[in-house]
Design a binder for these strands. Structure first.
Length: 438
DNA sequence: TAATGCGGGTAGG
DNA sequence: CCTACCCGCATTA
């Protein structure tokens, strides 16, 4: 590594993972990592991190978001997709002014049960707000162990509030259990998911729990990475819908940007493109949809999102569950900056955010048993020592064409139009960029 | 009871 | 060839 790079490393604001140009599917991942990222509980956006293989949280593939295992038939890469968040279907406000934002149970069965419960606060049914931050599909997280490092890659921008973190949920459960075991009775209806305390409970939980994963030792080296404050402001009173594009400078945006676009991973234009960011190789192609996509004409058709057809299956349930809603669900539309991201206020690029990327995934069938697969370990068998050449990567990938589209103008309206109580949630399906196969 | 992972299998693109 | 996703199974906490 050159001296210059080292220096860059020192004052670079981006994560170690973002400094390299890699994709979770690459046969070879950066091997010369000298530094690891501190564990990030609330990753969001198209980010990459390289954690130490020793990091307990990374080992457990932890995430603040409720992520469930997804079978990608690739034993080298663990894939997880976001389940969203469970909220009160009525969007009621808890005594403390916050809103219920439960962590969806990971287990399908448990989740179904969970959804049958009622809001501990207003007794309205609970609703699962699915995540659709990745082209209308749930945000996905990928984990891969390679050498001494654990590579993490996330795709998509969560378009829903944060659920309780795992530790919060656990804390709540145990505290409830305690309460239940000691007192002779417990209001039955409170047994819901364990009630009311959505955020309220936070006050009962040891503060350390809120960020404490298994090893809370990591000082946030990258304060700009994760905001301690969820971008979704649960305290926002229902009545007053905040400025739509109000996205308070969201620190998390500052972390995910380098390196992507070149690969076709896209990066949200909303991510600051300040020059002090790392990856020097990056050549932002974002705003210029036309330039790099001469051959992508066909795709532009995808820009005509049709919430009615576009959204994946999960949607039906969505509709089903949200349809009954009345009106006071503004918060869905107004408080999810992710869906209506903005960078510089007033920036036209504001709505172009949710760009997604379809990365080619090398399907690596696992296990030798069945078909005489070439050992899927090929991925790992690569001489770990071989130095990783980002340059190589770039050239290889440059064969692809990044297609980009701008959000249709109506995206802007989605917000104001949404008065029906549910359609707003399906208004913006990006699918703006695609990675073209040669 | 759940969280997690795994992997077989399906559907749609 | 992929991706998303459903389902059951096993292990662990």
């Amino acid at each position: 590594m050159s001296r210059a790079e080292e220096r860059e490393e020192a004052d670079c604001v981006c994560s170690v993972g973002m400094k390299f140009t890699w994709d979770i599917n690459d046969p070879k991942l950066p091997q010369d990592t000298k530094q690891f990222d501190p564990f990030q509980e609330w990753t969001d956006g198209y980010v990459r991190f390289i954690y130490s293989g020793e990091d307990k949280n990374a080992q457990r593939h932890l995430s603040g978001w409720a992520m469930r295992n997804t079978n990608n038939h690739n034993c080298q890469i663990l894939k997880k997709s976001c389940l969203g968040v469970v909220v009160c279907s009525r969007g009621c406000t808890l005594p403390d002014g916050s809103r219920l934002q439960l962590r969806p149970a990971i287990c399908d069965k448990a989740r179904q049960k969970q959804q049958k419960k009622l809001c501990p606060s207003c007794n309205a049914p609970l609703e699962l707000l699915p995540c659709r931050g990745h082209s209308g599909y749930p945000v996905t997280n990928f984990w891969r162990v390679d050498g001494k490092a654990i590579f993490f890659q996330a795709k998509g921008v969560h378009d829903h509030p944060r659920p309780e973190s795992k530790s919060e949920t656990e804390a709540r459960r145990s505290s409830v259990k305690r309460r239940v075991s000691s007192p002779p009775f417990t209001p039955k209806r409170r047994l819901i998911e364990t009630p009311a305390l959505g955020p309220a409970l936070l006050s009962c939980v040891d503060p350390s729990d809120r960020i404490s994963f298994i090893e809370p030792n990591f000082p946030q080296h990258y304060p700009s990475f994760q905001s301690p404050e969820p971008y979704y402001n649960p305290h926002n009173p229902l009545g007053e819908a905040p400025p739509t594009l109000q996205k308070p400078a969201n620190p998390r945006l500052y972390m995910s940007r380098p390196g992507y676009e070149f690969q076709g991973y896209l990066t949200s234009p909303s991510y600051p493109m300040t020059s002090d960011f790392c990856d020097p190789r990056v050549t932002p192609v974002l705003g210029s949809s036309s330039s790099s996509s001469s051959s992508s004409a066909p795709l532009s058709s995808s820009s005509s999102f049709d919430p009615q057809t576009k959204p994946p299956s999960g949607w039906k349930e969505l509709l089903k569950s949200s349809a009954p809603y009345g009106d006071n669900h503004h918060y869905y539309s107004t408080e999810y900056p992710c869906r209506y991201p903005s960078n510089a206020p007033g920036s036209p690029a504001a709505l172009q955010t949710i760009i997604t990327t379809t990365t080619k995934v090398s399907y690596q069938p696992c296990g030798p048993p069945k078909p005489p697969l070439h050992n899927c370990s090929s991925l790992l068998d690569d001489p770990p020592s071989s130095s990783y050449s980002t340059e190589v990567k770039v050239t290889e990938e440059s064969g692809g064409v990044i297609k980009s589209l701008s959000f249709p103008p109506d995206t802007l309206q989605t917000k104001t139009e949404r008065t029906d109580g549910y359609d707003y949630r399906y208004a913006s399906y990006p699918n703006a960029y695609r990675y073209d196969d040669y």
